[in-house]
């Protein structure tokens, strides 16, 4: 595919632009990019179209954007018993806190698995993945029991509290994502730690000031994954958060469509579009860490 370029690399002189050469270098990437944009974006056009059509059904018609108006957006933003702005804020706080703490707890664990040798290490690593393979059919019942017991004793972190919800999410902090970080930690030469150790740096200092910077790309990825997962969680949040002003976007929005006969798809779609914005924004912001890691890694 790019074989044309092999000779040109070492000769940096300007050469006339040819489509063939451009296509060989980056053009084909754009072609793939456009195909993928259509593939990933097209089904979502239905959602966008439904959100702009105040009486819209989701899949009733293939004539997208037959009506364009912002009534559905106005409806969810102004509805008195759907405090959308509040849900939005709650979601960002809960998902933000959860993802930061998940990254932190996960990185701590990944560091110890990667750099230390102790009994139970292999079993521990395997257990982390296996635990998450357990079918979650009864998870909600069990979590409700735990949280209601905790709530009896300590109402501040029990049922119907956001702190409690975050704690439940942190139960999943060690898991597949820890493994991902672990794999990334392993690719960082241990000579770096050893050099620092000889210089007298403590393990905590090595971890916080050296290693964490080197693994920034994977921290950003895990943080984003955790943020998205938390934002989209409905099952746990709907059982734990009872008061409307404490709920998250997913819980609030699902109520709009949970009764099929009264489902308000345009409002739900509008909410989903708005809910996707922080995820997009976070990804745009984190991209520089995810890809910027390339240069940071090669410095060392």
């Amino acid at each position: 595919m790019t074989s044309v370029d092999e000779g040109t690399r070492v000769i940096p002189q300007k050469r006339p632009f040819t489509f063939k050469r451009w296509f060989g270098r980056t053009g084909w990437r754009h072609a793939i990019g456009i195909v993928m944009v259509v593939f990933s974006g097209f089904p979502l056009l239905y959602v966008l179209s439904a959100s702009l059509n105040p009486q819209g059904t989701l899949t009733g018609s293939n004539e997208l954007f037959s009506q364009v108006g912002f009534e559905a957006y106005a409806r969810i933003l102004n509805s008195p018993d759907a405090p959308f702005a509040q849900w939005f804020g709650n979601t960002i706080v809960i998902a933000g806190t959860t993802s930061i703490l998940t990254v932190f707890l996960g990185a701590l664990a990944a560091y110890s698995f990667s750099r230390m040798r102790f009994t139970g290490r292999r079993v521990g690593l395997l257990t982390l993945v296996l635990v998450q393979m357990f079918p979650q059919l009864l998870a909600v019942v069990a979590i409700f029991l735990v949280m209601s017991t905790i709530g009896d004793l300590f109402p501040a972190i029990g049922l119907n509290t956001q702190v409690g919800l975050i704690m439940v999410y942190l139960g999943g902090a060690l898991g597949v994502n820890t493994y991902l970080m672990y794999g990334f930690f392993n690719t960082i030469p241990s000579s770096i730690d050893e050099a620092a150790k000889i210089d007298g740096a403590s393990h905590a200092r090595i971890f916080f000031t050296i290693i964490l910077r080197l693994v920034a790309p994977i921290l950003a990825v895990v943080g984003l994954l955790s943020f998205i997962a938390t934002t989209n969680d409905f099952v746990v949040a709907s059982v734990l958060l009872i008061d409307p002003e404490k709920q998250t976007l997913a819980v609030g929005l699902y109520k709009l469509v949970s009764n099929p006969n009264y489902a308000d798809w345009s409002a739900f779609s509008a909410g989903a579009v708005l809910a996707a914005l922080p995820v997009m924004a976070l990804f745009l912001y984190l991209q520089k860490y995810i890809v910027g890691g390339l240069t940071a890694g090669s410095d060392k």
């Binding site: 409700f144 029991l145 209601s148 059982v239 409307p244 699902y254 109520k255």
Partner: peptide, 21 residues
Amino acid sequence: LVSKDNATLKDDFIQQVPTGK
């Protein structure tokens, strides 16, 4: 008044009543 998701209301009710919650 607690607004609940219609789809999960019945199961939640059956599961939570015995707990006293």
